[in-house]
């Protein structure tokens, strides 16, 4: 009897096949499974709800065609997440981003002094980071990619990834102190 994860893979493989053939049902099922993850990743990278939503749409509209090159390379979720990360990064490069779309309003007051790291303040600080630093911080710390993986995704060397992580942390500490 297949294990739960094997079942999942079987089901994924079936969905991949049907979705890449253009089935709306299969795409809907993939959306139900993976859209939340894509959205979360896009939100934390972009700090903009509107842009994150656009990314989710782009990823799932592009998925049927993109899945043709998936070829069961590793778990589907990780693959989709990487595609989503690349989509976000491309978006950052192509579009000049508008700051005022940030998820957290700039106007949110610094409500410090309650917990050691105030959530509102942290969101503000993350939003205030330059894209290049935030991307590395989010991919490495929040998403758990290794520096090698981050480097490959972003198009930098692993050493640059380390430097950016340290700069991001330094900036966050400064912004939060």
């Amino acid at each position: 009897m297949p294990t739960v994860s094997e079942q999942q893979q079987i089901r994924d493989a079936e969905l991949v096949e049907r979705a890449s053939a253009g089935s709306a049902d299969a795409l809907g099922a993939l959306y139900d499974r993976y859209a939340a993850g894509v959205h979360r990743l896009a939100c934390s990278l972009l700090r903009s709800a509107a842009e994150a939503e656009d990314v989710v749409q782009d990823v799932f509209l592009g998925l049927p065609r993109a899945l043709r090159s998936y070829a069961n390379r590793g778990p589907l979720e990780a693959w989709i997440q990487r595609v989503a990360a690349r989509t976000v990064l491309m978006r950052m490069r192509v579009h000049r981003r508008r700051r005022e779309d940030a998820l957290v309003a700039d106007a949110a007051p610094p409500a410090r002094g309650e917990s050691p790291v105030d959530r509102v303040a942290l969101e503000r600080a993350l939003a205030a980071l330059p894209d290049a630093l935030r991307v590395v911080f989010v991919l490495k710390v929040v998403e758990g990619y290794s520096h090698d993986e981050v480097a490959a995704l972003v198009g930098i060397t692993p050493e640059t990834s380390r430097v950016r992580l340290f700069r991001a942390r330094k900036a966050l500490q400064d912004l939060l102190s």
């Binding site: 795409l27 799932f60 049927p64 480097a151 972003v154």
Partner: peptide
């Protein structure tokens, strides 16, 4: 998403990692 998919819209996604 499904409406746009149904209307034949598609998006070309970046599949390769960025060049260093």
């Amino acid at each position: 998403v499904l409406t746009r998919h149904g209307a034949g819209e598609t998006v070309i996604l970046p599949l390769a990692d960025s060049p260093v």
